[in-house]
Amino acid sequence: MPPRPPARPRRSYDQYCAAARALDAVGDRWTLLIVRELLAGPRRYTDLHADLPGVSTDVLASRLKDMEQGGLAERRRLPAPVSAYVYELTPRGRELLPVLRALARFGADDLGDRAPTDAVRAHWFALPLLDGVALEEGLLEVCLPEGGFHVRVGGDGVVSYGDGPAPGVPDARMVLDAGAAVEVGRGVLGVGEGVRGGRIVVSGEGALAKALRAG
């Protein structure tokens, strides 16, 4: 991991406008994609760099420092014997989840076919899926050929997601490919329709699984 960069003056639009203030905090290139990664849980610097193809080490370190200064993220040391540092979002940083969901919804129609040069990670499909699927309370594990992620809906309706398999036994498991995931996120394919058409497999017997199959 490169040395942590020194604090630098933040650029500002110098406009007395809430949208401009928000862009002062997250408008730099790569910042919102770093937020996307950290919404999936605490990440080590090396993991962030691996899942942000194209970002330089200098830029990544600089953006993380800016996010710490802005109160969006924090860096903490994992307890022994791991002895590693991770970055995670603060409560203020997690408030950006609906912003990323809205951006995913806005950009879904522009995805088109995947180009040979396009990188892809399974958990990148979580944001559009959160808008394309009405979820009951519970823990959902989503499996794609590229990997998997999990989504948790609390009793208060709060939604969170994480990279990798579900911690513990999920209430439902959904298996699909990237094409189906994109269509679900765009709202052109319902999960129930995908199940009936053989493009999506949903397992589980609880309310969450039954709601997905009926959706």
Rank of each mutant, 00 (worst) to 15 (best):
residue 86 V to S: 08
residue 13 Y to M: 05
residue 89 L to I: 04
residue 19 A to H: 14
residue 20 A to G: 14
residue 7 A to L: 09
residue 190 G to D: 11
residue 202 V to E: 06
residue 35 V to S: 10
residue 119 A to Q: 12
residue 130 L to P: 03
residue 164 G to N: 07
residue 122 A to E: 04
residue 138 G to S: 10
residue 125 F to M: 15
residue 7 A to F: 08
residue 10 R to W: 04
residue 4 R to N: 06
residue 165 P to E: 03
residue 198 G to L: 11
residue 107 G to V: 00
residue 112 G to W: 12
residue 47 D to Q: 15
residue 208 L to H: 08
residue 123 H to G: 05
residue 124 W to T: 04
residue 84 A to K: 15
residue 31 T to I: 07
residue 146 E to M: 05
residue 128 P to K: 01
residue 35 V to R: 08
residue 90 T to S: 13
residue 11 R to G: 12
residue 77 R to I: 06
residue 84 A to I: 04
residue 211 A to G: 06
residue 198 G to I: 08
residue 197 G to R: 00
residue 75 R to S: 03
residue 16 Y to E: 03
residue 214 A to L: 11
residue 16 Y to D: 08
residue 28 D to A: 11
residue 27 G to C: 03
residue 94 R to N: 02
residue 73 A to G: 10
residue 95 E to K: 09
residue 158 V to Y: 01
residue 5 P to Q: 01
residue 111 L to R: 14
residue 78 L to G: 03
residue 78 L to Y: 10
residue 60 L to R: 06
residue 167 P to N: 12
residue 145 P to C: 04
residue 43 R to T: 00
residue 18 A to D: 14
residue 83 S to K: 03
residue 73 A to W: 09
residue 25 A to T: 05
residue 66 D to P: 03
residue 64 L to K: 09
residue 65 K to I: 05
residue 12 S to K: 05
residue 22 A to V: 15
residue 51 D to W: 08
residue 157 G to K: 04
residue 76 R to G: 11
residue 22 A to P: 02
residue 103 L to P: 06
residue 215 G to A: 07
residue 215 G to S: 13
residue 154 G to Q: 10
residue 159 V to T: 13
residue 194 G to Y: 04
residue 208 L to V: 02
residue 60 L to N: 08
residue 172 A to N: 08
residue 196 R to C: 03
residue 122 A to Y: 00
residue 215 G to F: 04
residue 157 G to N: 10
residue 187 G to F: 06
residue 79 P to N: 00
residue 169 V to D: 13
residue 113 D to Q: 12
residue 112 G to C: 09
residue 36 R to G: 02
residue 50 A to N: 10
residue 93 G to M: 07
residue 11 R to V: 07
residue 149 F to N: 00
residue 3 P to A: 15
residue 58 D to V: 12
residue 33 L to T: 09
residue 148 G to H: 05
residue 204 G to I: 08
residue 210 K to Q: 15
residue 160 S to Y: 00
residue 33 L to F: 11
residue 194 G to N: 05
residue 94 R to P: 00
residue 212 L to F: 14
residue 104 A to N: 02
residue 19 A to K: 10
residue 202 V to M: 05
residue 86 V to K: 06
residue 2 P to N: 07
residue 157 G to A: 09
residue 21 R to A: 14
residue 101 R to D: 00
residue 192 G to V: 01
residue 65 K to N: 12
residue 36 R to D: 04
residue 210 K to W: 08
residue 52 L to D: 01
residue 214 A to F: 02
residue 75 R to D: 03
residue 157 G to R: 09
residue 69 Q to Y: 11
residue 42 P to Q: 06
residue 211 A to H: 07
residue 68 E to Q: 15
residue 57 T to M: 01
residue 46 T to Q: 15
residue 29 R to A: 02
